[in-house]
Amino acid sequence: MDLTPRTVTEPGTQPPARKRRWLPILVVVGALLGGGVIVTQFLTSAIDYYCNVDEVGVRSGCSGERRMRVQGVVEQNSVKHADGGTTFTLDFNRKTLKVAYSGDPGGVFQECIPIIAHGRVVNGVFESDRIEVKHSNQYVEKNSTRIDASNKEAAACSVLKG
C-alpha cells in the first residue's frame, strides 16, 4: 500500500488548507493582558495606605496630607447632612476622626456601621471623595416581633459592636 504524499493538482481536489485557530490564540492573549491589567489595578489601588482611625497621624504612611483609605465605625448621632454633603465622626479603638464627604454615601451607610473613607486629612478633618460601607459577616434576621422599626438602628449598632 502506497501512503507517500500525493501530488494532487486538479482544482477542487486539493485538501483544505490547515486553518490556524485564531480565536483561542486571541483569547489566550486577552487573558494574559487581562491578568496584567488586574494585577496593575490592584497594585495601583494599594498605593493608598489603608489606615485605621487610630493609626492616622501615627503610623508611617498614615500621616501628613497624603491620600489614604481610613477605616472606622460611624459614631452614633454624629451624621449630619448639609449643603449636599455629609459630615460624621469615625471611631476606632477609642480614637475619633471628623469626616466631611462631598455627597450622600450610598449602600447601607448608617450610624454604627464600619466604613472605609478615601481622601486626605486637611486641617484635622478627613476630606473624603469616596466611601465604601463594610458589612460584617454576621447575618441577623429582622424579626418584627423582636425588633420594630424605631429601634432598628440601635439593633444594627449592637450587632456591629457586639
Binding site: 483561542p24 483569547v27 489566550v28 487573558a31 491578568g35 494585577v39
Partner: peptide, 17 residues
C-alpha cells in the same frame, strides 16, 4: 477576577489545536 481570567485562559489553551 484573576481566577476567572486564568480559567478562561485554560479553556482557550484547550482549544489551541
Amino acid at each position: 477576577a484573576f481566577l476567572f481570567i486564568t480559567y478562561v485562559g485554560y479553556l482557550a489553551v484547550r482549544q489551541l489545536g
